[in-house]
């Protein structure tokens, strides 16, 4: 109750600050995206925005290989029957299916900014987070780091509970509650996860972004956040309630200490997944759209669950 109380009445000052900062950040982003023709990092030369507004006319602008095809599919079909090897029904059907899914994620007004931020986050990971994670891995054995991760994860129970309830997932809410009770007691303050290991109680991670998605709020444009990585408009706003339901926010007074704790959590998490980001990254032909799709597709799935 205390944290809810603070959230609603008590702590309005810092809440206002946070909202203000967020609003400022958003406006900065929007400003960036709408004003420059986005120089640098691999965006189309010249007509940056007009190409993005015409998603259907794929392969139109400046491509030598693809002829200037009319946007409609049918007129194209007549002229190019000869070289079409999609006559096989299944291939055509699958092609159509994948093409339909494509349309959902076509709007990407901030791609110029997002690209730059992706490069920034990538360097940050490679030069700071990864070495820090490796350092921690060197000094702490795996079971300790896993215990730490479990401990923090257990503390996020209020966040998961509220979001499960908001999505009317009552059985999952119950399971989460049993998990919390079990892991806090038998699992010694959440350091271990006997709920899963011994009793088969599964975690049901839900955040506000998923809750909004569950009730039909679309993702909005993709936005890469500094330090935090890929996100979108919906999930970005959802960070605010998520932030206030994190015990680090309502138990620790000093903002410096909060930040230190969050950084430590992140480094600890990284230390348990060394090498995975690099491995994933090797699949990318073009890192930004790759990470964007991975994020958006994964979120869409989490919301459906």
């Amino acid at each position: 109750m205390t944290f809810l109380g603070r959230l609603i009445i008590g702590d309005t000052k810092s809440a206002n600050q946070l909202w203000f900062t967020l609003a400022l950040v958003i406006f900065l982003f929007f400003g960036c995206a709408s004003q420059n023709g986005i120089p640098g990092t691999g965006t189309p030369p010249g007509n940056g925005e007009s190409t993005r507004e015409a998603p259907q006319q794929l392969g139109k602008s400046g491509s030598e290989a693809a002829p200037a095809a009319p946007p409609g599919d049918k007129s194209e079909e007549d002229s190019e029957k000869i070289s079409d090897e999609f006559e096989d029904e299944m291939a055509a059907e699958l092609d159509k299916e994948f093409a339909e899914k494509e349309l959902d994620e076509v709007s990407d007004p901030f791609s110029g900014y997002n690209r730059s931020m992706t490069v920034f986050n990538d360097k940050l990971y490679t030069w700071v987070l990864d070495p820090a994670g490796r350092g921690l891995r060197f000094v702490l054995p795996e079971y300790s780091r896993r215990g730490i991760a479990n401990f923090f994860d257990n503390l996020l129970y209020p966040l998961r509970l509220i979001n499960n309830l908001l999505q009317a997932k009552f059985a999952n809410s119950g399971e989460e509650t049993l998990r919390f009770v079990t892991n806090t007691t038998i699992g010694v303050f959440g350091l271990w996860d006997p709920a899963d290991k011994w009793f088969g109680l599964e975690a049901h991670d839900e955040d506000f972004g998923q809750t909004l998605g569950y009730w039909g709020v679309g993702p909005g444009p993709h936005i890469v956040l500094p330090f935090l990585g890929p996100s979108n408009l919906r999930d970005m706003f959802a960070l605010v309630p998520d932030y206030y339901l994190d015990p680090a926010t309502y138990y620790i007074d000093s903002e410096k200490d909060q930040l230190a704790l969050r950084v430590f959590k992140e480094v600890n998490k990284t230390s348990l997944h060394i090498g995975e980001y690099e491995n994933l990254k090797r699949d990318a032909l073009d890192l930004y759209p790759f990470l964007r799709d991975v994020y958006e597709q994964n979120r869409a799935k989490l919301i459906l669950e």
Binding site: P44, G59, L285, F290
Partner: peptide, 17 residues
């Protein structure tokens, strides 16, 4: 497939095969 498709589309929008 979807992820490759989206990257290919982006690349072909700006450059050649």
């Amino acid at each position: 497939v979807q992820t490759y498709r989206s990257q290919f589309r982006g690349i072909l929008k700006n450059t050649s095969f």
